[in-house]
């Protein structure tokens, strides 16, 4: 159906433009808060892509976790630390700019090549209808998660636990120690020491 295809392509192009635009905006912006907002825009467009690809669960999780949790966290941190605009400091390492551009170009070339190969490869699956696919539904993801991917699931939960503990350890107030030393003649000296990140 031409109209549906065309519509799909149109949606795709819009979303792609949104994504790329937000991405570039994020990199260019000097104010980190604006960059965070741009990143949220990227995430929303990606959620749209997932919907297009027939993965509603993933799209929902994308919005909830990425845009809703991670970005909120980032915004919290920005607010907490009262981050200011990046000052235009002269670049200390001059070589970084050309290196970055060069690296990016190479990366792009390689990616393009891979994509071309993928596109030209004879492996073809009958074009699944995204709308009617059963793959991305919550039910099937849930089934797969608790049967084939049970071990990664459990490990991931442990990983999250570790992250929680780690985050708490890292972000707590430095411990203040009171060291009491006793002299040879019985006098006590009290010393106040702070455990910082770099003297743990």
């Amino acid at each position: 159906m031409i109209i549906a295809d065309l519509f799909q392509t149109l949606i795709w192009i819009v979303l792609a433009g949104l994504a790329i635009g937000s991405g570039v905006a994020m990199v260019v912006q000097r104010n980190p808060l604006y960059a965070a907002i741009s990143l949220i825009g990227v995430f929303i467009s990606f959620a749209g892509f997932y919907l297009l690809l027939g993965a509603p669960f993933i799209a929902a999780v994308q919005v909830i976790v990425y845009a809703g949790a991670i970005m909120v966290l980032v915004v919290f941190v920005i607010m907490l630390l009262n981050v200011e605009e990046e000052v235009r400091k002269p670049l200390r390492l001059k070589f970084l700019i050309p290196a970055a551009i060069f690296g990016a170009a190479i990366l792009f070339a390689q990616a393009a090549f891979i994509i071309y190969s993928v596109g030209a490869s004879p492996v073809r699956v009958p074009n699944a209808d995204a709308a009617n696919s059963q793959i991305g539904l919550t039910k099937s993801i849930g089934t797969g998660l608790f049967t084939d991917y049970l071990l990664p699931f459990e490990i991931t939960s442990i990983l999250i636990l570790m992250a929680i503990v780690g985050a708490i350890t890292l972000a707590r107030r430095p411990t203040v120690l009171l060291l009491v030393e006793e002299d040879y003649d019985g006098k006590k000296h009290v010393e106040r020491r702070t455990l910082k990140i770099d003297n743990i």
């Binding site: 200390r92 390492l93 970084l96 290196a99 970055a100 690296g103 190479i106 990366l107 390689q110 990616a111 090549f113 891979i114 190969s117």
Partner: peptide
């Protein structure tokens, strides 16, 4: 400098990807 580390990581990644691209070719 952390960013130079990032650059070197990128360099490594490029090499790995290039290897696979070559394998593909």
């Amino acid at each position: 400098f952390v960013r130079s580390y990032a650059a070197i990581i990128l360099l490594g990644a490029l090499l790995v990807i290039g290897y696979f691209a070559a394998a593909l070719a």
